[in-house]
Amino acid sequence: MSVRSGKAPHDDWAAALEIDDLTVAYNSRPAIWDIDLRVPEGVLMAVIGPNGAGKSTLIKAALKLIPRAAGTVRFYGQPYEQVRGLVGYVPQRGSVDWDFPTTALDVVSMGLYGRLGWIRRPGQGDRESAMHALQQVGMQDFADRQISQLSGGQQQRTFLARALVQDARIYLMDEPFAAVDAVTERAIITILRELRARGKTVVVVHHDLQTAPEYFDWVTLLNVEIVASGPIAATFTPDNLRQTYGGRVAYLHEGQRIAGLEDE
């Protein structure tokens, strides 16, 4: 997985993910609009915004899963195709059929398919690293469980393990905290912090304003356009939130107090 050394046009700091002028439209209506975003290496970043703000669209467009109307996306200064191995992806849990006949371990080893490339099959070593990833999310006991017999949180952790096994440098996660139990939420956040400690970059679509300041150190506020992006202390301000969520900001005060933002 060698990264070809390419020069990034904006070299103020090393950007793990760099998005320029990205616009995505569904039926000629903009879902995200002229996004400029730089995610520095090693941060744990939340993408926050109201429903329909284009949070998932942003991630999918970055991974070229949906066509872009305009703009460029670079990971470590390279187009996505050349650095696929450096990028891990956790889709929304609802995007697959959990009744599929396969085990948790097998789902995790799917994370290795991209590295294996065409036709080659996963071997014993691959199974071991999949098992190790399951262990990391506390799921080793469920390795041979059929995936429909897992709880929602366990399914989410399986997805997370599948991304871990990719051993990427940057992870994009689409709502990993959506509808999970407390155990899973804690397990996920532990993993996220471990990833950051190992110098990985993590971008998480998140919808819970209460927990955002506690979990993340970087934030992008998105509502079709970028409202603000930067370190959470400086960016997660009532002003910016009001700009993101419009008039519905009233109930946020509670969350900010809990998060200790009013001290600042």
């Binding site: 320029d20 002028d21 903009p30 609009w33 002229d34 109307a69 305009a70 703009g71 460029t72």
Partner: peptide, 30 residues
Amino acid sequence: QVVLGHIHHHQGSASASEELAASTLYRHFR
């Protein structure tokens, strides 16, 4: 609209000369 929005966004910003050069504008949109 995309082009107008882009110009509007970058007009007067520090990176304007780089973002809004007529001859290379197409690169920002691919």
